[in-house]
């Protein structure tokens, strides 16, 4: 019967334990790195601006604003600072804010995966031919952090 050298068995056992320990440590580091990079439990929002600009005598704009919590933490929207700013840019590139809207006023808490939306309709009190772009800026403030998205829409009156 062949016997294994006692030192060789011991070395194999030590190597096995070292490899297992290294694998556990590496797995832990990898998981922690992914957790940090994925910002799993930090605030994450998806902002959506959808709308239409059209003429019917005057220039009209309707916008649907949606904010969705795609993180795993709750958001509390601060109404006082959350708004939608509607601006026009004229052919001489001068810009004017037409209106600042209060939005998402009926609810303030966004649970993970939850979304809230508001729709705005507005008529621009200016000759449509002079307006080249409309600028829509959505600003959401939650827990001292601001999230903003701007969309620039070229009006077809001035293609």
């Amino acid at each position: 019967m062949q016997t294994t050298h006692p030192h060789f068995t011991f070395a194999l056992d030590v190597a096995d334990k070292i490899i297992k320990l290294a694998a556990v440590l590496l797995g832990g580091v990898w998981t922690y790195w992914n957790y940090q990079k994925g910002r799993t439990y930090e605030q994450k929002l998806e902002l959506d601006i959808v709308g239409t600009v059209f003429t019917r005598g005057n220039l009209y704009c309707d916008i649907k604003l949606t904010v969705k919590n795609i993180g795993n933490t709750q958001h509390v929207v601060e109404h006082e600072d959350t708004s939608c700013e509607l601006s026009i840019v004229r052919e001489d590139l001068s810009e004017e804010i037409i209106r600042v809207f209060d939005i998402f006023t009926e609810d303030d808490t966004l649970e993970p995966g939850e979304a809230m939306a508001d729709t705005l309709c507005w008529s621009v009190p200016e000759t449509a031919e002079r307006i080249v772009w409309m600028k829509v800026t959505l600003l959401v403030v939650s827990d001292g952090v601001q999230w903003s998205r701007t969309d620039l829409v070229r009006t077809a009156v001035n293609p």
Partner: peptide, 25 residues
Amino acid sequence: MVVHFKNTSIVSGKPVNKEKLAELK
């Protein structure tokens, strides 16, 4: 004339710009 627009983005939060917020308010 009708122009449709759509913009969906996942954006990063930033510290609040107090001057801008005061101006909007």
